[in-house]
Design a protein around this nucleic acid. Structure first.
Lengths: 124, 124, 124, 124
DNA sequence: GTGGTCTAGACCACT
DNA sequence: GTGGTCTAGACCACC
């Protein structure tokens, strides 16, 4: 499982792993009841410490996306729909504060959308 | 000077103070050559450590928004226009990560804009 | 033999198999000298690893509930009475930790009993 | 802060720490906005590894009981009422399965309550 | 000083 | 083999 980590990013590695897995569920590459690579295996592939993978897997488990089974591994628990819903909720929560502040300071909606489009274009 | 700090937010307090001051310049509450509250005074009002206020003032000074004058304190140096540019830069920085995440996970630009509009409508 | 395994539960699978068999003895579905499904057959029905079934059968054998007979398989050895005792012991083991936690945190006995009654009423 | 850990218990240490803190909130020893002992300090007091304390604190943070602030420490976020509610919900969830199984196997409500009382009496 | 992240590696229970 | 827990210790940002 390839995940395109950016070790120089300010986003924590475990967060990048979480996002990568969520993305693979969203695009259908991972389906309900699929078994993820084992902690040790993924850690070895990504060249990170097993604890870092553990953290990503466990947080996804808490969020209901994955399920852990001793002796078996981590299974995908969520359907695409659910995952998408969770994702949008998180997005909404993250955008709330910046937008609120912008509005309070007299920035117009159109300007924000312009910024969003700009960022989207320059993001890989 | 009231600033509506959210001590529970993940955004550093000095960052919130900076934004609060920028906002007040943007909406005209603070004008060029106005004197800001002293470090100790603001720290006492906000119930934060003076070092935190110092950091906010100093960074705003480096960015050219404020000017330090011995015996007087910190003065507003920037016009609304400059401030606006900085504010937009901050906004851009805040939106970068969420948008990058969304894009990587297969969310479409239109969906994000929809969320932004929704949040805008339901805000304050 | 259908056993209603919950692969997502935190209870080990072999434990669920043991409980399922005990339950069937308790409600009369299995009687003394009945022959259980072979290890490979049950493993195939339940879609679990044969080792898991082996562990369940072996532990029930140790507890005196089952008897292994070469060439025949595992037979039910216990009467309902014995099984009932074992079942109560299991129940006790399962309730121990939650109750200990509750007591340590200042929950009162009456409150727990209330919860138990509530759950009992709303169950199946 | 004394917490009465039982290193020989099968309950993980981080779980015991969580319960201890929840208990102190429940009995009023810790109130909203109180600052908990720092990770290093509590680890040193309890003679466990800082990571173990981190895990307890972070899980309580996820559950909304605590709030982390860089440079300050962990604050109590929940009122007694909320904490109690969370606690009862967890208790209910933990008791659900055992009680369901018991009911299915012909155990009577009175027998379960008897077991609960017995466990309560023998628990410290 | 504080928490946040990450590495390295141990021992255990479960399949 | 798998995940679950725990120890030991590093470097960073923030107050």
């Amino acid at each position: 499982m390839l995940l395109n980590l950016d070790l120089r990013s300010s986003m924590p590695i475990y967060e990048q792993i979480k996002l990568g897995i969520l993305g693979k569920i969203l695009n259908g590459e991972l389906k309900r009841d699929d078994v993820l690579p084992s902690i040790r295996e993924l850690a070895s592939i990504l060249r990170v410490n097993p604890n870092t993978v553990i953290r990503a897997y466990k947080e996804l488990e808490i969020e209901g996306i994955l399920i852990a089974r001793q002796g078996i591994g981590f299974l995908v628990n969520a359907e695409i729909q659910t995952t998408r819903g969770i994702f949008m909720a998180v997005l909404q929560k993250e955008l709330l504060e910046p937008i609120r502040k912008a509005k309070r300071s007299g920035i117009e909606l159109e300007e924000i959308i312009e910024v969003v489009k700009e960022l989207w274009k320059n993001t890989e």
